[in-house]
Design a protein around this nucleic acid. Sequence first.
DNA 1: CACACACCCTGTAGCCACTACAGGGTCAAG
DNA 2: CTTGACCCTGTAGTGGCTACAGGGTGTGTG
Lengths: 144, 144
Amino acid sequence: MKIGELAKAAHVEVETIRYYERIGLLPAPSRSPNGYRAYAGGHLERLAFIRHCRALDIALVDVAQLLRFVDDPTTDCAEVDALIDSQLTRVRARLDTLQMLERQLVALRNQCGAPDRAAQCGILHELEAPTRGDVCVCHDEHAQ
Amino acid sequence: MKIGELAKAAHVEVETIRYYERIGLLPAPSRSPNGYRAYAGGHLERLAFIRHCRALDIALVDVAQLLRFVDDPTTDCAEVDALIDSQLTRVRARLDTLQMLERQLVALRNQCGAPDRAAQCGILHELEAPTRGDVCVCHDEHAQ
DNA sequence: CACACACCCTGTAGCCACTACAGGGTCAAG
DNA sequence: CTTGACCCTGTAGTGGCTACAGGGTGTGTG
Ligand SMILES: [Zn+2]
Ligand SMILES: [Zn+2]
Ligand SMILES: [Zn+2]
Ligand SMILES: [Zn+2]
């Protein structure tokens, strides 16, 4: 299997595959006489695993860790669980932030009475608020 | 005001301020005879505005655009509104993705029956699923 | 006055996970 | 014989900072 075929099979860019090889995530395949990379089934499996993890937004360092567990199935899976847990924690933290952000943006959006000149726009007015030392609608880190 | 004082006042790293200056977001201040940057009140205002936007996760290019509106208050604020709207759209899209992600991670986390050897761990098992062509628990991009 | 220490300067490189060339080689179809 | 699709290596760019390295400056203490 040539790199383009592997890319198509795994729904990944060719450059991404070479990148994974460069950083040591995907083992270097054998080469055809012409120098082209020649992949076997195992490479597609491993690449699918990686992409699957990436779809879960798991960082590549953590994917590398998971791959080590896959390669050595005698290790205690508690570390796998912990890794997923910490990933879940990160995702939930980001979710909280984004939900706050959405509320703040909606509030901000409602500030614009009617589109007119920027001088009257409530949005810009609101964004300038912390400038004047007013209570900040979106974050209070600089309000304390 | 020296750069460290400005940094403290705006709750920003010194390097961040120099970075904003380098990319043209914050105007270069005048210099003291010793070469130190000497900031005026306007700089703190502008920096607060930028950090306020960044707290709303608005990209620096968009912040630059907003600053142009601030500087020229005669422009039509419809563009401001559109910018906030598109930001809101981005945030909501990311929210949707993250919510799916959280559900998938929870499902994945529940796969681990009891921590034991990695060979039996349902999490690794599940992460390997797309490898075997099974229906993918987390993303179907490579399942169709 | 000597020294420490905090702060300032410039410039460059690193982070993450790719993505996009530039500049070349290989191969099959028409 | 030419076209075009694919492959190769190596390097640089993205965003939004962050972290040095290698210097200069300013203040307080012994
Ligand atoms: Zn998947
Ligand atoms: Zn408006
Ligand atoms: Zn704010
Ligand atoms: Zn487990």
